[in-house]
């Protein structure tokens, strides 16, 4: 399972991509990632963010899960990510940035 996180927007407006892959992670971390993905439940999440007025300098996250030839992508504004999704985002950022 691979999780790709694309962060855009923000004060700097610099697009950056972070990934976490169970193939290259330690077994324990791989399990952690699977649990976080399961809890985030992206299958029941809208693909695009609900249209609403932009918030100055906030990030957007595009989260893509690749698993057994299936792929699921969703985009969310940072201040409207549900808690479980936010935990997944934080985890990938932390792992990818070392």
């Amino acid at each position: 399972m691979r999780v790709r996180l694309e962060r855009s927007g923000g004060f700097a407006n610099i697009r950056r991509t972070f990934t976490a892959d169970t193939k290259t992670l330690a077994t324990v971390q791989g399990e952690e990632l699977r649990h976080l993905v399961e809890a985030a439940d992206l299958a029941h999440f809208p693909e695009e963010p609900t249209p609403r007025p932009g918030r100055p300098d906030r990030f957007y996250y595009r989260v893509t899960i690749e698993h057994e030839r299936a792929e699921r992508s969703i985009t969310v504004a940072e201040d409207s990510a549900p808690e479980a999704l936010q935990r997944l985002i934080d985890w990938v950022l932390r792992i990818a940035q070392g």
Partner: peptide, 12 residues
Amino acid sequence: YRVGYDNAFWDG
């Protein structure tokens, strides 16, 4: 705010 957060913003 948060850990290693690459941003600053006005939240309203």
